[in-house]
Design a protein around this nucleic acid. Structure first.
Lengths: 331, 331
DNA sequence: CAACACATTGCAACCGTTTACGACTAAAAA
DNA sequence: TTTTTAGTCGTAAACGGTTGCAATGTGTTG
């Protein structure tokens, strides 16, 4: 049951040097004579010595671990973000400690506190909406935090996003240009920063600006089924242009429309604000707002590495470009 | 820059007790008088004391962290597995340390070693094929390992799977019953345990058994585009029945077939061996082998908790039931 | 040859906990 | 009253490293 077979002390003894010296060669400190280094390395090799990262963490106060906070692993949006984060983290030799907070804010603060107790060197937060307690915890700690694909209303924390308002308006503009007047917004969590503080605002601005009266915002549409089932209401409301934030939802609406004999894009145009495989798979293929999710994650992680290294950030609020990619679900 | 504001020692001093006592109340040890406990808890509360999990880990040799090894976060297959794992891990108060090993085996052993150095209490492995070095490392350590959705040829490690051979044969049987004779297998990694040691074997058995001559195995089909592009070859080979292991690939084939005017299921039947949203979204909807991915992950994690707790496993090789769910892509 | 600079190494404190062990107290048993 | 017993609590040694500082040796310089 001996977990730690061989410690730094064993190596020191075998190599006839002090632990300090072994520690130095393990950490690539170059204040070591070449022959000594080689001698130590030989022993390390022979004994299969592996440093205990927990002990290193305690002594050095750095765990080379970053915490990731997200709502749902199986949501492609977060999966893509995570991939960008993971790749950069790996590149900089950080491990990722995962924490999904489900879809509710319940216990978010406990989850975060737990992460902090594990002494992560930094945190990437990509949940939709930061709760008050969470924010307090983040403000109290000096562990750096970067938001990826979301932001806080006060811009208190560094973040990486796209210009959600502009994207929303551009998408709405396309629908309007195509002659659609009864425009609707379909979102998941209405309280999410991206929705409440961006999409809703942009939508209302747009509607006012173009003197469009029929405001339709549908919330809590998260799954394919939600989208499929929502179609009835959409039809009743005579909506002819839709922007859905998740593409599985958009796909559900599109399929329901097709099944009901409604022609896309003639009678109904659909734009998805996310862009995953699904948008290509559903027929007609969806016009989408292409968010550079991978890049958002990667940039966020890169920023975090700087912060963990006590470097300054050139820009604490990076906004990456999006593109509106037209496809068959709009004219 | 003081990371640790308040330690157990501070609490001890303020509460006029020893560190040992504080430790006891923190860990819920009941050898503490009620009044003492309350006094200590009050101080903990007042000082916002949070235990340092790294120090706990070093002293107790348990990190309440498990390592997760998988190829790709953005592959729904692994995402679903992970969710099952994550939920159970959370339930048992474990955190997850993520390690994706890309699609190549390169450095897999380093990744694993790194995880082990961080003193994870256990590992869940769900990559397709365990490399030799990886296996050696796992055999040398006494950190428990459970395989989820895969297995090793020798059954050396506990695992949770479905009966891939039976599933394969049942699917092939359906195609044959529907009059298809030119049956093909489309897989991602041909060397993966699930394919090499199960699907290929079952396929060849089946073909022999039914005296079918035209063997078609297509490898390296991983993405929607791969599937779409593969269709040409499939057509040339006059294949009329397909089992694809990934549903995005199946969707690609289906869409390519539709675009080429090939009728599904009349001229071509398709079965997907995986079952995510995509199978429902593509038209015609795909007949799928429903793997209980979430459950596989959950059961694997549950087994791991037992192992980490030095409990015996009733069954080290759990096989969960699958179902063949017929839909529009087969008759 | 003395003085000094620099490279190399060891000493020992420290990181923040857990936990065996023993001490102490008060109540129960003899 | 004396001895047991059980319940509480403190002491101090781990856990496996890192790192500031001092010590040593070696070569350089005046």
């Amino acid at each position: 049951m001996q977990k730690q077979e061989v410690t730094i002390y064993d190596v020191a003894r075998e190599a006839k040097v002090s632990m300090a010296t072994v520690s130095r060669v393990v950490n690539g400190n170059n204040n070591v004579r070449k022959e000594t280094r080689e001698k130590v390395l030989a022993v390390i090799d022979r004994l299969h010595y592996q440093p205990n990262a927990v002990a290193q963490g305690l002594a050095s106060k750095r765990t080379t671990t970053v915490g990731l906070i997200m709502p749902d692993l199986t949501n492609m949006h977060f999966a893509e973000l995570s991939k960008g984060i993971d790749d950069i983290a790996t590149m900089y030799k950080y491990n990722i400690l995962l924490s999904s907070v489900g879809n509710t804010l319940l216990n978010e603060d406990q989850v975060i506190q737990n992460l902090l107790n594990k002494q992560v060197d930094g945190v990437i937060y990509m949940s939709n909406l930061m709760g008050e307690k969470a924010q307090e915890i983040f403000e109290r700690t000096n562990t750096p935090v970067v938001l990826a694909g979301t932001a806080d209303a006060n811009q208190d924390f560094p973040s990486v996003t796209i210009d959600y308002k502009a994207a929303e308006k551009e998408a709405l503009g396309l629908l309007l240009k195509n002659g659609k007047k009864n425009l609707a917004l379909v979102v998941g969590d209405g309280k999410a920063y991206v929705n409440k503080d961006n999409r809703f605002v942009a939508y209302k601005d747009f509607m006012e600006e173009h003197k469009l009266k029929n405001v339709h915002i549908y919330e809590d549409a998260r799954t394919y089924e939600d989208g499929y089932n929502l179609f009835d209401k959409i039809k009743t409301d005579k909506v002819d242009g839709i922007i859905a934030t998740r593409d599985v939802v958009a796909a559900g609406i599109a399929n329901a429309a097709s099944d009901a004999g409604v022609k896309i894009p003639e009678d109904l145009e659909i734009i998805s604000a996310a862009s995953t495989n699904v948008a290509k798979i559903v027929r007609p293929q969806l016009t989408t707002v292409q968010q550079p999710l991978y890049d958002i994650g990667a940039v966020a992680m890169r920023m975090l590495t700087k912060l963990m290294n006590d470097e300054e950030l050139d820009d604490a609020h990076v906004i990456l470009p999006y593109t509106l990619k037209k496809s068959a679900s709009t004219k």
